[in-house]
């Protein structure tokens, strides 16, 4: 009994030790400033990414330049960082990219002559839907109940007759 218990303890210890050793010898990896594409989380980096998330990558369209690993996206992030260090405002940085790549780089398209439909189409659809439902409901409410067809009235009188013959 004592031998079995000792064996169990030793087994448990043997299983545990490597895990303990590993956690002691390997501290959590710190992000290296030299690793490509990996940057430390700083206020500057957070602002850079916040702007980058609002800009569309032109190479891998459909990704923001914060998500994209394309070389151009990396360059654009570097440009945002550089402009922030110069003290530029977010709006001015966005304008910088719009001047070069057009409104296409903006994930939130500005309200212009060609985009007003894009902005207001959902509103139009909701209003049109509400008006449509109101018209339908009002028309249905005004309609008198229609006359019964020949087969319906035959069925109705049959039901009435059955009820009369069999007053349950």
């Amino acid at each position: 009994m004592r031998v079995a218990s000792l064996c169990a303890w030793m087994l448990a210890l043997a299983l545990l030790l490597p895990a303990v050793g590993q956690s002691a010898s390997a501290p959590p990896a710190a992000p290296s400033a030299h690793a490509p594409g990996i940057v430390e989380e700083t206020p500057l980096e957070r602002r850079t990414l916040a702007i980058a998330y609002t800009l569309r990558c032109l190479v891998c369209q459909g990704e923001s330049i914060a998500d994209s690993q394309a070389a151009l996206a990396r360059d654009m992030r570097a440009e945002i960082r550089a402009k922030l260090l110069l003290g530029w405002s977010d709006a001015r940085i966005r304008q910088y990219f719009v001047a070069r790549y057009g409104n296409y780089v903006l994930y939130r398209p500005p309200l212009t002559g060609s985009t007003w439909f894009l902005w207001f189409a959902p509103l139009f659809a909701i209003v049109a839907g509400i008006i449509g439902i109101l018209l339908l409901v009002r028309r249905r409410g005004r309609q008198p109940p229609g006359a019964l067809s020949a087969s319906e009235s035959r069925r109705a009188s049959a039901l009435l007759a059955a009820h009369r013959e069999d007053p349950a």
Binding site: L58, V59, L72, D75, E79, R100, Y101
Partner: peptide, 13 residues
């Protein structure tokens, strides 16, 4: 080499 002028031209492809 760094694509700085390219960015001013809006080069992407």
């Amino acid at each position: 080499p760094k694509g700085t002028v390219g960015m001013n031209f809006g080069v992407y492809g």
